[in-house]
């Protein structure tokens, strides 16, 4: 469990979550990046850059 940095809602962080995963807050819908696992730390998901892609 972690608190959403925007709405303070509860976000369930599954056991197999990795650093660098993008998760969505179920309460407010914002996308967050898991920047650290131990301890859990969340940050706003990054803004898309022009050279990003698949």
């Amino acid at each position: 469990m972690a608190a959403c940095i925007v709405c303070e809602g509860n976000i369930d962080i599954p056991e197999d979550t990795e650093e660098g995963e993008i998760i969505e807050c179920p309460e407010c819908g914002i996308e967050l990046e898991v920047v650290s696992i131990d301890p859990i730390e969340l940050a706003p998901a990054p803004k898309e850059e022009e050279d990003w892609g698949e």
């Binding site: 197999d16 990795e18 650093e19 660098g20 995963e21 993008i22 990046e33 990054p46």
Partner: peptide, 13 residues
Amino acid sequence: LVSYVRFEEKKIF
């Protein structure tokens, strides 16, 4: 080398 861990990277791990 990763930027973020998406569905694809998790599957590769």
